[in-house]
Structure formats: structure tokens, C-alpha cells
Design a protein around this nucleic acid. Structure first.
Lengths: 211, 211
DNA sequence: ATATTATCTTGACGGTGTCTAGATTAATAA
DNA sequence: TTATTAATCTAGACACCGTCAAGATAATAT
């Protein structure tokens, strides 16, 4: 029991639960979060959380939502931060910003895109909305960069966005799970990915047009 | 209880457990597998499995191992299957073969690269070996294709392998979790990914034009 | 035949999510 | 203000889970 004042009504339990749960997950991953321990840590009975979240699933979705918002915010700053950068270098900054979030909060990231929510559980409507709008930001960037000839004009923007985003996502997951790659190589591999994804030269478009 | 003959000793419990567990996971994912239900389904007491696998974790690792072997086998056939294909098209076949496995056995794939084993649990030594050798196959392919100018010569092979593999992996996870993409678009997005990853300019295009 | 070892069983412990019914208090309507 | 309603919290119970310990049984080695 963390709380001293033992009022019957907590006052702002919903927010407290969300914050504490977020902290628990950030430290030990989804698996380390149990409603019972959470309730105990907050100083409330085991079933109290169910008056603020229908499910454990709903709690997780709410936490994931916060993650999306946080990432969006961190990543939206990029254009203003690097106003002079050329398209290719700007794209690299986008990628790095994205990856850095996943690297700094791996457990939150895993929750945001993990099985627990999207496969085992059922994502909340509001989470779906937020995650989609988060992806849309990415699509819009790709759109802009495509106009600046960074990507093949013949390829549909959505496809490019999906493919490039999947590439990023794959990187993040590998780093987070520690498969096939070392954490120190993060930025290097990210840079390689960027180089592979973008159109390498003006010639490229040209020779394709010939085709 | 599935088994009729009620001998005290099962005979080949280890294999039976492995096969049954694999089937359960293939159908309902890792979450749907419990040692107790598994034991019950096989017709044996709840703790019997512990004489063949130290842990649930060890069972999962053993199943994942089988997955890697199976995927390696399915994917190794490619070169012999398409002997006349040019590098770029061959690479695309590699990619498609890889993705198809993940698409046909999504739950097995998720187990092979999922948190359950690599983050929450502790991967068996033998699983580590097998998964690494599986990745090495990919690296060797990249090496070959790089020699044929499909990738930038200045980029280290390992980096290219990691980056391209991560891109694939990201795609598979997205499809499996159903985030941002529809299943019908699988091959189309995969193709886009291929086009983005390979070198489109200079000598590489040259060899393409020969076609 | 006896001892050893591998295999399997039953019972128990502590953990989980969450449903139900009841207690307490805050908010609201009269 | 008072009475009623609604929100919030608690305790108890249920059905799961992984797995440890101790004992039963059968195959194997001596």
C-alpha cells in the first residue's frame, strides 16, 4: 500500500492506475503487469480497477494509446528541427527518431504493436483510431518525400509507406528482442536501411523511365 | 484422454507432446497452449511433461526449433526451383518464399521470433544455434546477390542482410497481427519492398536491361 | 533376483483474471 | 435539508495456470 490517506474513495484512481501500470510495463514489460499487483501497489482492492477499465485488455489499450501519442509528438518535431536538410537526410532523421523511441521505451513499443493487444486481445476502437492516425503521419511524410523524388514515382504512395514502415518496424522488433543484431549497431543498420529504401540517384528514376 | 491403451509408461511421450503442442499452437497461438491441457489431451497427468521438458519454455523452444528447420527446408529449395531467373527475380522469390511460410503458419512464426521465447523466456542454446544458422543462410544469399550487383557494393554484407531481413520480418509481423495492412495485399507489398531494397541504378539496372 | 533408473501420478502452493454480492460514500433530485 | 440514486470500492469465490515434492510403477542394468 503506497497511499497513506485511507479515504474509501481514491479520488483519481483511473489516472493513478494508468500511470502506475505504464511505469510497471516500462520497467518489466507486459508480462510483469498483473491487475492484482497493480491494485495492491496503488493501495486499493484487487477488483477496484474494474470500475475504471472493463478489462485488463482495456487498460493495456489505454496505455498503448498514450504510447502512440507520445511517439507522434516526439516525431512530429523533426521537420522544424532540421529545416535545411535535404530530403534523403531528412528521411534518415525521421527513421532515427522513430527507432529511438522504440529503443528508449522498448516495452511500451512492444505493447503498442504486440500480440497481446492485436492478436490475443481485441484493440479498442479508440486505439485503432489513434494508431491509424499515427500511421497516416508516416504516409504523409512519404508523400512529401516522394514528390521530391526520393522514391519511385510509379510505386503507389501507400505501398511505399507500408513497405518502409514495415522495414522500420522489423528493425525495432529485432533490437528489442535481441535477435540477429546487437544494440550498438542500431544506428548503423538503420542508416543502411535508409540507404536501401531510398532512390539512390537521379539516374535511377531516369533508367526506370527508359524501362 | 485421447489414448486408449492405458499403459503406465506412454512409450513415446516426448514426441507426442511435441507434435500435439505444435498443433495446438498452430491453431490457437502460444497463449492457447497450457501444459495441463496438453497433458490432458495426450492422456497423461499434468506433471508428466516435466520429465521430458524442464520447462514450458523448453517445450516452446523445441517447437520453435522445428519451425526454423521447416522454414529453412522450404526456402532452400528456391534456387533449384528457379534456375534460370535473374538475380532480382530470384531475390523476389526468396522473399516470397519466406513470407509465405510466415503467412501459412503465422502462429509458429510468431513463436519463433516472439517475446515469449526471446524476451520473457530464455532461448535454449540449441535454439540459438539453429536460429543463427537459419540467418546465415540468408546472409549467404545476400552475399551471392551482392556479387551480382543487386546491392550496393560499399555496404557491408552483414548490414545488408540484417536490414533486408528486418524488412521482411516487419512485413510478416504486420500481416500476422493485422496492423496497417490487409492480408490480400501481402504479395503486392512484398514486391514493393523488394523493389525498394534492391539497387535500381547503375550496373544493377544494366543487368536488368539485359533481360 | 535385486538394485537402479526412468517414467508417471497425486497433492499442494502461490499466482492469475474476473464474476457476484454487498458496503460505503459522493452526487443529485426532491 | 433530506432522500434517493449512482459511483466507487471491498471481500469472497471460481476456474484457470506453472511447477515443486513425494510417492507409485515399470523398464533396465547388474
Amino acid at each position: 500500500m503506497t497511499k497513506d490517506k485511507k479515504t474509501y474513495h481514491h479520488g483519481d484512481l483511473r489516472k493513478t492506475l494508468l500511470d502506475t501500470a505504464t511505469a510497471i510495463i516500462r520497467e518489466g514489460g507486459v508480462e510483469s503487469l498483473s491487475i492484482r499487483k497493480l491494485a495492491d501497489q496503488v493501495g486499493v482492492s484487487r477488483t477496484a480497477p474494474y470500475h475504471h477499465f472493463k478489462d485488463k485488455n482495456e487498460l493495456l489499450c489505454a496505455i498503448a494509446e498514450q504510447g502512440f501519442l507520445q511517439q507522434d509528438q516526439a516525431v512530429k518535431k523533426i521537420p522544424a528541427q532540421y529545416p535545411t536538410l535535404l530530403p534523403a537526410a531528412l528521411f534518415e532523421q525521421y527513421v532515427l527518431a522513430y527507432i529511438r523511441f522504440a529503443n528508449e521505451q522498448p516495452e511500451t513499443y512492444d505493447l503498442m504493436f504486440g500480440r497481446e493487444i492485436w492478436k490475443t486481445g481485441t484493440p479498442t476502437e479508440s486505439l485503432k483510431v489513434i494508431s491509424k492516425s499515427s500511421f497516416r503521419i508516416w504516409v504523409e511524410w512519404i508523400e512529401e518525400l516522394k514528390e521530391k523524388n526520393l522514391f519511385n514515382q510509379e510505386e503507389p504512395t501507400l505501398r511505399i509507406a507500408q513497405a518502409s514502415w514495415a522495414a522500420l518496424h522489423g528493425l525495432c522488433r529485432l533490437f528489442n528482442d535481441g535477435i540477429y543484431v546487437n544494440r550498438e549497431d542500431l544506428e548503423a543498420i538503420a542508416t543502411t536501411t535508409v540507404h536501401m529504401l531510398i532512390q539512390t540517384s537521379g539516374k535511377a528514376t531516369k533508367s526506370k523511365e527508359i524501362l
